[in-house]
Design a protein around this nucleic acid. Structure first.
Lengths: 350, 350
DNA sequence: CTGTTAGCGCATTCAA
DNA sequence: TTGAATGCGCTAACAG
């Protein structure tokens, strides 16, 4: 490995001078600059980033923590952050927060000890206090999370309203018995989405029926199970709201299996980020959760906070859901028959 | 930031001793070990990985290069590699090779200068020679690529045979006019898949008809365009083989739009890694390209090469395609009518 | 404009 | 068993 020392020797200058031309800092004669540059090229020298980090106490990389590598959601998220920070020529280091407080904490810890210039967090388990504490050691951007005292560092999405829009859509089509497959409610974001469902119902004076709600992981298989469970309760419903696209996929699996037709028998709407809903048949209506755009803004926002002078301030910190209507919803044809053993009343099935 | 020096001072020992207890190296009295350990806990000291890397000329992280962050394919790939190397407590650094020689080269270069212990490459553009050259600087594992002189470092997949199996399946159902939507043939892997198609046809004495072949990016939109193009040629076919799952999705988009039914009108089979084919309706038959299992093996193989003694040698270096049959294929009902302006003869449509 | 020097935090000789 | 000294490759004062 060729080092700065080799270059210095060959060019008959000091290491300091080489450092100067490499970093374009300080004053160097054109003559020596050229000479050094030539040697650098000859030797194919490239500075050791590790040594650099140690000397600067900064690594020119930004850290990103996500729960998992799996799925298009996180793929888009990573790609967009990368593209955002590319313009500042920063490297991206991604690490998994997995699904526990401890593991999120450890992940962030590592990002910090590794001297990341800044960190973007898609943290699900860590509490506000701990995040605030971390934010005193390094500048942190929160993606899809809001902490008041860190408000200028948050890229947020209004899950409640988005969710509400989705359910409103169903209601506007005459549905009143609307099932909801939600994420586990001990998770904050899942709660928000569920809250939107509740809000929409009460706005329209429809009572919330616990029998129509089921919690599940955001996962196709679990969505399948959840839907089965919903049906087995024998409580009729004419529409379903899935709080994630994977859930919608699992839901459709059941419907296909049982010969339930969407939207003829049941209407369906879902949350969606990566247009998974357009892979299903029929295409499923959804509220779009624009994680890609948000991730890009998160990158830009971090850059902005890292270097106030050169970067423009990102204008968009708060995002909202946009309805993407597709043929998975239709007007309820008639009131469901009286509740019975079957979920679907005869009138609805026909 | 608390350093080794702080710990040493507080514990009344030298930095060397602290280093010894941290790394469990050399001889240290139980007494002093305990004392140092206690101070470490008190001060919440954790070694600076950057300084460590510089001193050791190694970073305890392994590098992974993939073309892109986007999509479940790469998500699974990353997650599996991570899980594989977790057992050795190594960190993973992922970087995008993007879609050019230069950018792949630069990505690897960075992985090397960053002192990765080893590198896993999913390289698409770089030529063998260059990879071999890199492999002299650091141990490199090739994922889904074979270079004879690096054979013990390659995790391979037999694309030709896999592809052949897929097309065989179509042929065994009586199809002879089989369209093929392939990746761009300047790419090696795309060629292999195409070769499988050709092999299968010639094995069955079916001439290859260039009119039935179209090149495309592995991308839903492009798959859509490609399918349109295929249909516009007016050359009848009764089955389609898509060389990637995204292509199959795009293909189905066209079919849905035009009211072409799978498998009644046309049979379809695809390549697939992430079961995207099971999101489509009907579920599409596919040859499974087990990137997840391969990625995990790549991780294990790297660990093995990095530390021969402690790791077991991964047994599986070569993988092959497994057929996953689903209701997207049916026996050809009759010979297609004479070629005409329409792709689908009346007999086939009915 | 350029060179000398002194760290960055840690691991590792070599002595003691 | 422990400590002092040195270097990893680079940057950043400070002098000249």
């Amino acid at each position: 490995m060729v080092t700065i020392k080799d270059v210095a020797a060959r060019a008959n200058v000091s290491q300091a001078t080489v450092s100067r031309v490499v970093n374009n800092t300080g004053q160097v004669t054109d003559a020596t600059r050229d000479r050094v540059a030539r040697v650098i090229k000859e030797l194919n020298y490239s500075p050791n980033p590790v040594a650099r980090s140690l000397a600067n106490n900064s690594s020119n990389t930004i850290g990103l923590m996500i729960s998992s590598f799996r799925g298009s959601f996180f793929g888009d998220l990573m790609a967009e952050v990368q593209e955002a920070i590319d313009i500042a020529n920063k490297r991206l280091f991604v690490t998994q927060g997995r699904h526990s407080i401890e593991s999120e904490r450890e992940a962030i810890q590592h990002l910090i000890t590794t001297r990341c210039d800044g960190i973007i967090l898609h943290a699900r388990y860590l509490c506000d206090e701990e995040i605030i504490a971390f934010s005193q050691q390094v500048t942190i951007i929160l993606l899809d999370r809001y902490i008041p005292s860190l408000q200028n560092f948050c890229i947020t999405f209004d899950h409640v309203t988005a969710s509400q829009k989705a359910v409103d859509q169903l209601i506007s089509h005459g549905h009143t018995r609307i099932a909801c497959i939600t994420g586990h409610l001990y998770r904050h974001k899942a709660c928000e989405r569920y809250q939107g469902y509740v809000n929409s119902l009460s706005d329209h004076n429809i009572p919330v029926d616990g029998e129509l709600v089921v919690e599940s992981e955001y996962d196709r298989q679990q969505g399948y199970e959840a839907t089965k469970q919903l049906l087995s309760r024998g409580n009729p419903f004419t529409a379903v709201y899935c709080c994630s696209e994977e859930l919608a996929a699992g839901c459709m699996d059941v419907f296909r299996e049982l010969g339930i037709t969407v939207p003829d028998d049941i209407s369906l709407i879902s949350y969606d980020s990566v247009d998974l809903c357009t892979f299903l048949t029929p295409h499923i209506s959804a509220v779009h959760f624009p994680i890609a755009a948000m991730a890009r803004q998160a990158g830009a926002l971090l850059l902005y906070h890292l270097d106030t002078e050169s970067m423009e301030k990102p204008v968009r910190l708060a995002f909202e859901g946009e309805l993407r209507l597709r043929p998975s919803i239709r007007f309820r044809k008639s009131t469901p028959a009286k509740p019975g053993r079957n979920t679907l009343s005869e009138t609805d099935r026909s």
